[in-house]
């Protein structure tokens, strides 16, 4: 089974917009809404840490809209 390889804050991939999940707890409430809606199943919630797989993520922005507290940004 795939496990997280990149934390949310790491380097952007060329030609892809950067995705930033604020998972240090300043905004994130670890509710799992982004995990449930991710169509590629590439966001992982592990108690108080959210990570996503940079390579799999297509920046579809669904998680940005699903986040109830605006903790996910795409730039």
């Amino acid at each position: 089974m795939r496990r997280p390889r990149w934390t949310a804050e790491v380097r952007p991939v060329p030609n892809k917009k950067s995705l930033h999940i604020e998972s240090s707890g300043q905004l994130c409430i670890y509710c799992g809404a982004c995990v449930g809606i991710c169509p590629l199943n590439c966001i992982y919630l592990d108690e108080t840490r959210i990570t996503f797989d940079e390579k799999v993520c297509t920046r579809c922005e669904v998680c940005v809209k699903a986040c109830p507290v605006g903790a996910i940004e795409i730039g």
Binding site: N41, A66, P68
Partner: peptide
């Protein structure tokens, strides 16, 4: 394992959810 179920996905059952099929709650 709840809303963000991994078990179904791992077993190959389609549990994908569209934006119109989900409410985000606070």
């Amino acid at each position: 394992d709840g809303f963000e179920s991994q078990i179904g996905r791992w077993a190959g059952i389609s549990t994908n959810i569209a934006m119109r099929d989900m409410d985000t709650c606070l």
